[in-house]
C-alpha cells in the first residue's frame, strides 16, 4: 500500500522534473539541466525511453528465471509468472521501440536505420513474438510451459553474442555507442550531470516498481482464472 502510494508520487515527480526543468548551456542552479550538444531538448527522452528498454530486458530475464524454476519444480504457478513477465516485457519492448523510433526520426533523420541498438531491440521483439507464437500453438498446458521455458533459455544464451558481433559489423549512432563523436561509454556515465542522474535513477526505480506492480496484478488475475477453471 505504501509502495503503491510512493510509486504514484515518485513517477509524478519524475515526469514533472523531466519536463519542467529548463535546459540551459550554463546551468546556474541545481534545478537546471546542462545542454548536451546534438541532443538539446531531445535529451529528455532518456528519462522515459531508457527505463522502458531496461524493463524489456529485465522482464525477459524474469521470464527466463521463472522458466528455469518451472523446469525444476513443475509448478504451474511458475509458468503463469513466466508468461506474465514475458507479456509485460513485450509491452515495454514495443514502447521502447516506438519511443526510440520517434526520437531517431528527429535526431538521425529516419525512423529506422539499423543502428546496433535498434537491431538488438528488434531481435528482442522477434524473440518475444516467437515465444508467444510458440505458446499459442500448444494446447496442453504442461507441454506449453515446458517448451516455452526451454525456448526462452535457448534465446537467452544466444542473445549475448550480439555484444561481440555488433561492434565488428557496424558503427553505432546511438548516444553512448562507439561511433558517438563525443566519447565512448554509456550516456549515463559521461554526459549526465548529477541532477539528471538523480531524475534518471528515480525514473528507473519508479518504472521498475510499476513493472513489479503490473506483474503481481497479472499473476493474481491469472491465478484466479486457473482457480475458476479448476472448479469447472
Amino acid at each position: 500500500m505504501i509502495l503503491k502510494g510512493a510509486l504514484g508520487v515518485l513517477l509524478t515527480l519524475v515526469i514533472i522534473a523531466a519536463f519542467a526543468l529548463p535546459i540551459t548551456p550554463q546551468p546556474q542552479s541545481w534545478l537546471e539541466f546542462p545542454l548536451i550538444p546534438g541532443l538539446e531538448e531531445k535529451a529528455r527522452i532518456i528519462f522515459f525511453h531508457v527505463p522502458t528498454a531496461w524493463l524489456s530486458v529485465m522482464a525477459f530475464l524474469t521470464s527466463m528465471v521463472f522458466g528455469i524454476r518451472y523446469l525444476r519444480k513443475r509448478d504451474m504457478l511458475d509458468d503463469i509468472r513466466s508468461s506474465s513477465a514475458a507479456g509485460l516485457g513485450l509491452l515495454f519492448c514495443i514502447l521502447a521501440t516506438a519511443t526510440g523510433a520517434v526520437w531517431a526520426k528527429f535526431n538521425w533523420g529516419s525512423f529506422w536505420n539499423w543502428d546496433p541498438r535498434e537491431t538488438s531491440i528488434f531481435v528482442l521483439l522477434l524473440i518475444y513474438g516467437a515465444y508467444f507464437s510458440l505458446r499459442s500453438a500448444i494446447e496442453v498446458e504442461e507441454k506449453r510451459a515446458t517448451l516455452s521455458s526451454v525456448y526462452s533459455i535457448i534465446a537467452a544464451v544466444t542473445v549475448p553474442f550480439f555484444v561481440f558481433i555488433m561492434p565488428r559489423i557496424m558503427t553505432g549512432l546511438h548516444p553512448g555507442a562507439k561511433g558517438d563523436p563525443d566519447g565512448a561509454g554509456p550516456v549515463i556515465e559521461f554526459k549526465m550531470s548529477p541532477n539528471m542522474r538523480v531524475v534518471f535513477f528515480a525514473s528507473l526505480i519508479a518504472f521498475t516498481l510499476l513493472f513489479v506492480w503490473m506483474f503481481t496484478l497479472r499473476v493474481r488475475a491469472a491465478r484466479l482464472e486457473s482457480h475458476l477453471q479448476a472448479k469447472g
Binding site: 531481435v123 522477434l126 516467437a130 507464437s133 510458440l134 534465446a155 542473445v159 553474442f161 550480439f162
Partner: peptide
C-alpha cells in the same frame, strides 16, 4: 519463426 532470432547472431557473423 522460432529459429530466426536464435540463428541471427550466427547468420550476421
Amino acid at each position: 519463426v522460432l529459429s530466426f532470432p536464435i540463428l541471427l547472431p550466427l547468420l550476421m557473423t
